[in-house]
Computed example of a mutant assay.
Amino acid sequence: MLERSDDHDFSYELHEGSPVRIQWHFYGESELPVAVQTWELPPGGFEGMHAHTENDIPLEEIYIVIEGAGRMRIDDETFDLAAGDSVLARVGTSHDLRNTGDGPLKILVVWGKPGTADYSDFGSAKLAQAARALDVPQAKPA
């Protein structure tokens, strides 16, 4: 099944923020227990400060920057973001994403209710565990 860029995209105002262009990939088709979306925020656009707590729908969110520059606030910390950076917003943390660049900020967002899954038998999981255990950054291939 193929879904092309901009298939089924729509404009939506998240958490009293500015309008964001969203594509919810394979909505109603995938059986994975997460939402996979791409967001495009215009220059100056923002998500709006919010939290997903145990009292409403507890959600964990992963934000991965595809293109552009942004700033993410998680509780009392602020992170400047560029392409390839990722941020984890755990259940209950207050967070907001803003486009601080001159062009669009494109983000891949994966969100859902927290849970566990065992992927330890996969070779990539073993390498990911080993990479996280290193105290020094790995050299990137040329």
Rank of each mutant, 00 (worst) to 15 (best):
A128I: 13
F122I: 00
A51G: 04
T116S: 11
D118W: 00
G92F: 06
A131T: 03
I74F: 03
S86Y: 11
F122M: 09
D76W: 07
H25M: 08
E61F: 02
Y119R: 11
G44E: 02
R90I: 08
H50A: 06
W111T: 14
G28T: 06
E31T: 09
F26Y: 13
I107K: 02
R90S: 15
L32H: 09
L41G: 01
H50W: 00
V109L: 12
L59Y: 07
E54H: 14
L105G: 01
K113Q: 14
L32N: 09
P33H: 05
D102W: 08
Q129V: 09
D80V: 08
D76P: 04
G92I: 10
T53C: 02
S30W: 02
A35I: 10
E31P: 04
W24H: 13
D118S: 03
T100P: 11
L97E: 10
Y27K: 13
Q23P: 01
W111P: 06
E40C: 05
L127G: 00
K106P: 02
A51R: 09
V110G: 11
P114D: 05
L108S: 04
A130C: 00
A82T: 14
P42V: 14
H50K: 08
L81Y: 10
D76S: 14
A128S: 05
S30V: 07
G112K: 04
G68N: 01
G112A: 04
L108F: 02
E60F: 04
P104N: 14
V87N: 07
T100V: 09
D75E: 03
D80W: 07
L105M: 04
D75K: 01
G84A: 09
A35M: 12
L97P: 10
G70W: 00
V109G: 03
H95D: 01
V36Q: 03
V34G: 06
W39C: 01
H50Q: 02
Q23C: 01
D96L: 11
H95K: 13
A128K: 01
I57Y: 09
A125K: 00
V91D: 14
I66E: 05
G103I: 08
G112R: 06
N55E: 15
Y27E: 14
A83N: 04
A128N: 02
W24V: 06
G28S: 06
G115E: 06
G103L: 08
S86K: 10
E29K: 12
R71Y: 01
N99A: 06
K113W: 05
L59Q: 08
L32A: 13
P42A: 15
E61K: 01
T93H: 15
W24T: 08
G48N: 06
R98W: 15
T78P: 04
A117H: 07
E31K: 11
E40T: 14
F122W: 03
G44T: 00
D75R: 02
H25R: 10
D85F: 11
M49N: 12
S86P: 08
E40D: 07
F122P: 07
A35K: 10
K106C: 05
